[in-house]
Nucleic acid binder design. Structure first.
Lengths: 219, 219
DNA sequence: GGCAGATTGTGAAAAACTTAACGACTATCT
DNA sequence: AGATAGTCGTTAAGTTTTTCACAATCTGCC
């Protein structure tokens, strides 16, 4: 089964959590069916792309009818949540880290932030958004063998050092919010999200790609 | 000149701010020249892609030599900063909003957050990261005609309402950090960044696309 | 039961993006 | 001066992603 999964395009994989959330919304609103066109308007993805994305998983809909929300939801739950919850650690309880901890993650979600780490003694020992804050010195002890992924919200000067310790403690993925581009062994996956770059890119697009009626938006 | 700019692929445009920052770093480290290979290792983008990206702007480098850091920097400054600074407003001074305000934006940057808005009377009137916090009721008065883009860091229930007010006040771009997919007229550009989806996508990739030696990383 | 209208799933084409490969050129070493 | 190693810009090939467009087929109504 894992072999076949490889046929799902990465672009599709990135949209799955988005679909999942909106289907969840529809379900809690009591909606029974939805068409690719409706969904398209809600998530801002072309309806043909949605149908194509869904089709990678087989025939989830019915012609002339659309998709059954209940069925779609249970399908996504099975596909995305897959067995067990992924345990995550968050490093760096500044403003950004705190924002993450307050996010209501467990809703519709296959991930749980188990621990946060910081070096500030005023924060260590407290609990934020239900997540205990540990001292950064304990990183290896606590993470080792138990945690799969890490969210990196430390100052960029500390990024590579903490990364090395995370890799050494066996995490397989890092969500890097620092401006530093961290270096990791080949088997570790890193996604970078850089707030400053996102803003600059938006501004560049505003200046150089003014939207005319009919042009579409992208992520 | 603006007409020709349209030939730059969007994928390239998104990488420009990243290149810009690293070239800046190199420059402040006193480095005089850099090759696409070196740069590739620093920013984690294939060296051929970098050469291709740069080439959209003409011949910036010298064969057998590489790129002159000083020249590259002045070129990017001209291209990205383009005349004047873009004025930005931030709506919602929660943890995420505060993180943004503390970001050192003006460094290497063509954008400035001029005002923040919130409804909390304890925050209104203060200044965070050098940015004055105004009451949300004043949004239209202050934004109108002066502000080009907005960063939306409000609770998702408020997202569409604030969006409508921003559009009405004449902003052309919105960086939306709420999980809601907002609806705007066609001439307004929206970039969505959804923290929860980023985490879920990372986890999905970890489970279904385990990295082997030789596979590459993407954003 | 039958028909009008709706909507999927997908083949095929187009578009967008990345990567490999190489000719042309530079710098430096001996 | 010639040899060597390094590097760009670009052509061409490859890959991935999006979009079009429509037959197949289901629903809902009469």
């Amino acid at each position: 089964m894992d072999i076949e999964q490889h046929k799902i395009p990465q672009a599709t994989a990135k949209r799955l959590p988005l679909y999942y959330r909106f289907i969840n919304n529809l379900h809690s609103q009591g909606k029974l069916r939805v068409s690719s066109k409706e969904l398209s308007e809600a998530v801002k993805v072309d309806s043909a792309t949605i149908r194509r994305d869904f089709s990678y998983f087989g025939a989830l809909g019915k012609k002339g009818y659309g998709y059954n929300v209940e069925y779609l939801l249970s399908f996504f739950r099975k596909t995305l949540d897959q067995d067990e919850i992924t345990k995550v650690a968050l490093i760096g309880v500044g403003n950004l880290g705190t924002a993450f901890l307050h996010y209501n993650f467990m809703k519709n979600n296959n991930t749980k932030i188990e621990y946060a780490f910081d070096s500030n003694p005023e924060k260590v020992g407290t609990e934020i958004g239900g997540v205990p804050v540990k001292h950064i010195d304990k990183l290896e002890d606590i993470v080792k063998g138990d945690i799969t992924a890490a969210i990196l919200t430390v100052p960029s000067a500390a990024a590579q050092g903490i990364t090395d310790r995370l890799v050494h403690s066996g995490v397989s993925g890092i969500l890097n919010f620092t401006p530093a581009r961290i270096t990791v062994p080949e088997h570790i996956r890193v996604h970078h999200i850089d707030l400053s770059i996102e803003l600059q890119a938006l501004v560049y697009f505003l200046k150089h790609y003014p939207l005319e009626a009919g042009e579409e938006q992208e992520e």
